[in-house]
Amino acid sequence: MVQKNKGQQFILNLLFIILCLLCVLPFVLLISSSFTEEAALTQKGYWFWPWKVSMDAYKYLMNSGSQILTSYKITLLVTAIGTVSNIMLTVLFAYPLSRREMPARNFFAFFVFFTMLFNGGIIPAYMMYANFLHLKNTFWALIIPWKLLGAFNIIMMRSYFTASIPNELVEAARIDGAREYGILFRIMLPLSKPMLATIGLMTGLGFWNDWTNSIYFVTQKNLYSIQALLNDIMTNIQFLQNNTQMQQHANQMNLPSASVRMAIAVIGILPIFAIYPFVQKYFVKGIVVGGVKG
């Protein structure tokens, strides 16, 4: 279906350029505001370029930021530990499911799939984690509930093992005396790098962006991730706006100014923008594989 018409191509590209701007400009607004001088910001408002460039917000963050450093550390640790554990559990589950020799293979495949069809909702799981396993206000509450292992990753990984790695390789390794763990870690994984990258990046992004586990399980500020900190700041601002009589207390609550808030949000998305251009092909691939396989 080749389009020969130049005019049509022009309109088509124009349309997509507008769509892309719509997707990107809001973040430009965020970044630009963080570099705008506070006085100019309150007078002229948020805008897509700084009214008056100033690094004050970032200087303030550098000097006053023990909470921000703590939160950044929490986010980094949660992302690193969470992603590695998730991938580990995923491949350990996916490999046996991809082998015909696996005992009760169909049962375990259904055991995984059924978690996608039916779930008990948040309340029973919350009660178990909070009241029975006592995860409230612990570091592990940010990793374990709901996020450590999912059927989606297992199914994607298993399909890759079955479809992209020839069975003969595994058979040959077994004849040479290789054990199952050896086959998984020395043969399957090195050959699965593209899929590991795809799943790893998507899982990592999920941990980096997570704030729901924080608001369910964490009230101590020393366990706030960057996202939880941003959520907390916004909640306080809204609380003040909804309760005007509280506004004289605003200074006592020591809320960050408009540009500082935006600067915290910017350092929260900075790693995503820094890494994304180099790994975008894995994301696009992940969406394609994940979306179609369901």
């Binding site: 350990l92 589950f93 978690t115 008990g120 029973p124 009660m127 450590l148 199952e180």
Partner: peptide
Amino acid sequence: MIAPGVIYLIINNYIPMAG
């Protein structure tokens, strides 16, 4: 190999289903 994953899915998914 699948034991840790099975235990996690029981805790995270199957017990809440019964719950």
